[in-house]
């Protein structure tokens, strides 16, 4: 059972995300969109979208940092006060994400215009994210110092998965809610190619380097001998 849940399922979820995402990108790029509903409703969106996105981005980055650099992370967490600080920051952003998500949920439920642009998958995704963030916040409140212990439990398990040498013993002894949080995390990953979540890998960082204006010609134009660049002035 543990093998199915903590070994097979994560692999399946990640494979789905990668292959599904690539397939959808190749097959139906048009459907890659954030599907923003800001045109239809503005005010409530602010109180939902902003805390949700900033909250979840910061919290996910912390997860990622612990996973990518466990030893450094642990060194930082060794200090009592840094641990306090990190935990408090974590609560704050986790709660912000949760509150934002609730606002988004209520907005979608109660506003006519937003309901008109809500698909069944939006409900699945919203419910699943709500569960995931709720579990996360609950775990961090009930099982204190998660910023510390997850490096010795979840991280080795994930590392073992990545290195194709799955070891479930790191997490089988963890409390049920913690295990649920991890499994549901992979469910979110599995939902990625089937929902509007795809927008998150589209975050347009390269805008920072791009020149303002873009000119595209069917045939590369040459200008006074030199090769024509598509970019205009920056």
């Amino acid at each position: 059972m543990n093998e199915v849940l903590f070994v097979a399922f994560p692999y399946v979820a990640v494979a789905l995300a990668i292959f599904g995402g690539v397939y959808r990108y190749r097959r139906n790029r048009f459907s890659y969109s954030t599907l923003s509903s800001q045109l239809l409703e503005n005010r409530t969106l602010f109180w939902g979208s902003v805390p949700w996105h900033y909250g979840i981005v910061i919290v996910l980055l912390a997860h990622l940092l612990g996973f990518l650099m466990p030893s450094m992370w642990q060194a930082i967490m060794a200090g009592q006060y840094t641990l306090y600080t990190i935990e408090i920051i974590g609560y704050a952003f986790g709660l912000a994400a949760l509150v934002g998500l609730c606002v988004l949920f209520v907005r979608r439920l109660t506003m006519e215009r937003i309901r008109a642009v809500t698909s069944p998958m939006d409900w699945v995704l919203l419910a699943d994210l709500l569960l995931q963030v709720g579990l996360g916040v609950y775990v961090s409140l009930v099982y204190r110092w998660g910023a510390d212990w997850f490096v010795n439990t979840a991280v080795p398990w994930l590392v073992s998965l990545v290195s194709l040498n799955p070891q479930t013993q790191y997490i089988t002894s963890l409390p049920l809610v913690v295990q649920l949080h991890m499994l549901n995390g992979f469910l979110v990953i599995a939902l990625f190619p089937f929902s509007r979540l795809v927008h998150l890998i589209m975050f347009p960082f390269w805008y920072l380097w791009r020149p303002y204006q873009l000119v595209i010609s069917n045939r590369p134009v040459t200008t006074m001998g030199k090769a024509h660049s598509d970019a205009e002035w920056a």
Binding site: R29, F30, Y32, T34, L39, M202, P204, V215, S217, H228
Partner: peptide
């Protein structure tokens, strides 16, 4: 983008991600 040939400004429907 602006078309090089005639300057018509177009939105690529496949690239747009609704950042609005």
């Amino acid at each position: 983008y602006k078309r090089g040939e005639d300057g018509v400004v177009l939105v690529s429907q496949e690239r747009c991600r609704a950042w609005r």
